[in-house]
Simulated assay, not measured.
Amino acid sequence: MAQVPSPTIRARRLRRELRRLRDRTGRTAEDVAKLLGWHRTKIIRFELGHSRVMPKDLPPLLDLYDASEEERESLTALLRQSRQKGWWSAYGDVLPDDYVGFEAEATSISAFESLYVPGLLQTEEYVRAIVKAGRSTADQDETDRRVAARLGRKALLSRDVPPRLWMVLDEAAVRRVVGGPKVMQAQIARLIEACGLPTVEIQILPFAAGAHAAMGGPFTLLDYSDPILDPTVVYLDNDSSTLLLEEERHVARYRLMFDHLMAKALDPDESAGFLARVADEY
């Protein structure tokens, strides 16, 4: 399966490029808004991603920023691509944030998970058990849509050039019985199978490792093919909120944290053996 450009990534690239062009002119956001007769917060909302750039808004911005013909063509294409629909748009009611859009074009995904198996490696039965546990009042249709949305993410792994996955899993994530012994047996088998894939590395952080750098909770680092155009994103998620971090200082902190986790965890070969022993317990 060929990789399709992510509108979420194109929208971020567009707002970053618009900020770069504004900085080049030496104008503040208020200066630009005043010159164009817009509300003073409109430019800020564009550049922070709080509102979308509309087709009618781009030409006056490019004129004011004295954009070159090449820049005009590039940003017009980005605007067009940013307004397209990703497959996940059909599940907007059950995928409330932008994470899937950021994940869709990542070339490398590094994640620490402390509570359950990461979504890209979950079996359908495991997904369904998690959804039912977390949405006890959901009807069958909502449950099915949430399951379908989570499983849809796994198409990433079928791309012509799939992303490189490096997962560090707390021992609790594979010890916690989700959906019953049979579901866990199949889930652990899926993890063991994934250990053999050339683009996947799995490390288990055993209880015996003690305290570690990520006691605060799970996180994911998303890297892209061009780190200048598309810098790394850190994603944090819990039951009540999600957060995307882009500032270099935050990214550097979580990158270092992930390095420490890898150093404390069992190496990939040891981790595969650990999973095999866990599988024998079911």
Score class of each variant (00 low, 15 high):
Q3K: 15
R15T: 12
R15Q: 12
R16M: 14
E17W: 01
D23N: 11
H39N: 15
R40H: 15
K42I: 09
G49S: 09
V53P: 03
P55Q: 15
D66S: 10
A67Y: 03
S68K: 08
S68G: 06
S74F: 08
L78H: 01
L78D: 09
L79R: 07
L79G: 08
K85Y: 11
W87P: 07
L95K: 03
V100I: 15
E105R: 02
E105I: 01
L115W: 06
P118A: 05
E124F: 03
E125G: 00
A129I: 06
V131C: 04
R135A: 05
T137W: 06
D139V: 02
E142M: 07
R146Y: 03
R146L: 12
A149I: 05
R150P: 01
L151K: 12
G152M: 13
R153Q: 15
P163W: 12
W166Q: 07
M167S: 04
G180A: 06
Q185M: 08
Q187A: 03
A189T: 14
I192N: 07
C195A: 14
C195Y: 08
G196Q: 12
P198I: 04
Q203S: 10
L205T: 01
F207T: 12
G210D: 12
M215S: 13
G216Q: 15
P218I: 09
F219S: 10
L222V: 13
D223N: 14
L229N: 11
D230W: 01
D237R: 09
E248N: 05
R249F: 10
R249M: 10
L256H: 09
M257W: 01
M257R: 13
F258K: 07
D259L: 11
M262A: 13
A263Y: 02
A272M: 05
L275I: 04
R277D: 15
D280H: 05
